[in-house]
Design a protein around this nucleic acid. Sequence first.
DNA 1: AACGGGACCTGATTGC
DNA 2: TGCAATCAGGTCCCGT
Length: 296
Amino acid sequence: MPELPEVETVMRGLAAVLEGHRIVEVEQRRPDLRFPFPDNLVRRVEGRRVLSFRRRAKYMLMRLDGGESLLIHLGMSGRMVARQASVPVMARLTPQGAASDARGHNAPPEAHEHLVMTTDHGWRVGFVDPRRFGAVDLVATEVEDAHRLLAGLGPEPLEDAFTDAVLSAALVGRHTPIKAALLDQTVVAGLGNIYVCEALYRAGISPRRLAASVAGTRATRLVPAIKAVLTESIGAGGSSLRDYVRADGEVGRFQERFAVYGREGEPCPHCNPPCPGIARIVQSGRSTFFCPRRQR
DNA sequence: AACGGGACCTGATTGC
DNA sequence: TGCAATCAGGTCCCGT
């Protein structure tokens, strides 16, 4: 599910529910996700107050009083569900927006809800992740960025420090398609399969082009394309490809604005006269969508 | 060192 | 209808 805009949206939703409140109970329902939960997770989180949230790449950091932060990665299939007794605000929605399956405090847990936190104002916030590619850890807040999962990450694409010069420097000498380079979280942090495809389309750059040949003038087009597609998606509440929802119960709507992702065979939005259709190829085992006419 | 492929999981969809 | 194959928004490890 989640790339940077989806993680940002989920995090803002969690902040709205949790900030300033105390976590009075933690239930850990299995020993691990992608790797084991941290030692004494329940004891270290129970009784703590939630101070603030931060996002780094596709990771969320929930700062707790007591000096530790809960680090959460949603993997491919992870989502957060929040509910309150008899007042479902973040119920599961269908992509069409019809509410369903609202659960109260005493309802049975839904499948694959591996971690549940209950707050002092009666909310239950759960981490649901069928495929278990997600991750949870605790890290000392003062040295968050030294965590092994964060230490090697590249620049945040929406920060001013992410410039064409910075991207160019990361691409120089790389003998891999630009598609693969942009998925590399040490080059730029937070892009995934969807937004790489969309950014390359906006920049008119072929996903097959060697990364090194994008350094320079093409990077000058690519950086604004990356920033724009991420910003627009965050503004739309991210993309909902399954039943992912925002904190306020609305589905993300950015998928309606995909120009190429998942649109094999359709003419692209900007070719006039219409192009023969968006192509799908496989690069390092993953689908790439692009317009062969516009993207060189 | 940088790269591609495979592994890790479950569920939804597609095709026979 | 039923079953198998394929695909999915991510990352990490391994061999080359």
